[in-house]
């Protein structure tokens, strides 16, 4: 069911949530986290849809914060909060509250979000579009254990990547990194089989692809070799080559979901490596809510000051 509230407050929204739950007859639900999505009206629909799909794996309360811009200067000084409360079938497996802020309250969205967080449960903030310069210092970001940004959604991804390196705080993560998991796990599995020292490496991808850059940096940090960045027509990452003394390990995905794996001295085989939907990326993100140390290492690339992992 859906309850619309205009010119409202957090406590009225809380009441509406309880009322909604009572009405559909489930007074207690096992929600495991609160997800805060900060977005604009244009991208809200897709983001909510992805979050609701992910909520099948991680039942959550989703709070969507949308800043609205009033048309006239007079309205702009007026502060107002509108809310749309969705529970039951309209909200995946959890609850969704869409918060629209006007005027001054837009700068204090955290004051609305804080009372609506689930007790004790972890908080995740996701900026599907532009994220703040320093996510962990943002008032909403500071409420969260985990802050999800997306380098694919920004204008200058590589510049932004540098900014993320500078502003990194434990709990930060980026969907460009999440997109790499299948690649990384296949590369690790390939190296398990090849069992050889890597002496050279190359990442082939379309120009300005932040995931490719992260992948290259991760390889540099782990393999201690220089990684060549080769620009291809794309889409996204098209191939990774690891040179060893015995020959080359290649995962090649020119297009589509099928990749080819070549190992030295072995015939090549097919691999499924598809580009995943946002909801799957979010679901993976929510599986672990502690700091992603490997992301930090990848951000810093070779510059990582490594404490030996094998204590």
């Amino acid at each position: 069911m859906k309850i619309d509230l205009t010119d409202t407050t957090a406590s009225k929204i809380n009441k509406a949530l309880v009322q909604g739950r009572r009405a559909i007859g489930t007074p207690a639900v096992g929600m495991v986290l609160t997800m805060v999505i900060v977005t604009d009206e244009e991208n809200a629909y897709d983001a909510i849809k992805a979050a609701e799909e992910a909520s099948h794996e991680h039942p959550s309360r989703t709070l969507v914060v949308i800043k609205r811009h009033a048309r006239t200067p007079r309205d702009r000084t007026q502060s107002r909060l509108d809310a749309e409360v969705r529970v039951g079938a309209d909200a995946g497996t959890g609850e969704t509250v869409i918060l629209r802020t006007y005027g001054e309250v837009s700068d204090h969205a955290d004051s609305v979000v804080l009372p609506l967080l689930l007790p004790d449960a972890p908080v995740v903030v996701w900026w599907p579009m532009e994220a703040p310069e320093v996510p962990s210092k943002d008032p909403l970001g500071a409420l969260a254990q985990r802050r999800i940004t997306d380098l694919y959604a920004v204008e200058n991804p590589l510049e932004m990547l540098e900014s993320r390196v500078r502003s990194y705080a434990p709990g930060d993560t980026d969907l460009a990194w999440t997109r790499l998991t299948p690649w990384r796990s296949m590369l690790a599995a390939a190296l398990d089989q090849a069992r050889a020292k890597v002496i050279s490496a190359a990442v082939e991808a379309e120009a300005e692809n932040p995931a490719a850059e992260l992948l290259a940096r991760w390889l540099e940090a782990r393999l201690h070799v220089r990684v060549d960045r080769v620009v291809t027509a794309g889409p996204v990452v098209t191939a990774v080559r690891l040179g060893t003394e015995n020959g080359e390990i290649v995962i090649d995905r020119p297009e589509g979901p099928l990749a080819t794996l070549t190992l030295p001295g072995q015939p090549s085989r097919t691999l499924a490596l598809k580009v995943r939907a946002t909801s799957e990326l979010i679901a993976e993100e929510l599986r672990r809510l502690d700091a992603d140390e490997m992301y930090a290492i990848a951000l810093n690339g070779e510059a990582t000051e490594e404490t030996p992992a094998h204590v």
């Binding site: 999440t178 998991t181 990384r184 796990s185 590369l187 690790a188 599995a189 190296l191 398990d192 089989q193 069992r195 050889a196 890597v198 390889l219 782990r222 393999l223 201690h224 993976e284 672990r288 992603d292 140390e293 490997m294 992992a309 094998h310």
Partner: peptide
Amino acid sequence: EYAGTDFANPLRDPRDRRLPRIAGP
């Protein structure tokens, strides 16, 4: 058994929790 000899795969790390447990060949 692919861990039989001393080869340590540099792409694997206990801190890297995203990489799933993939069976060996």
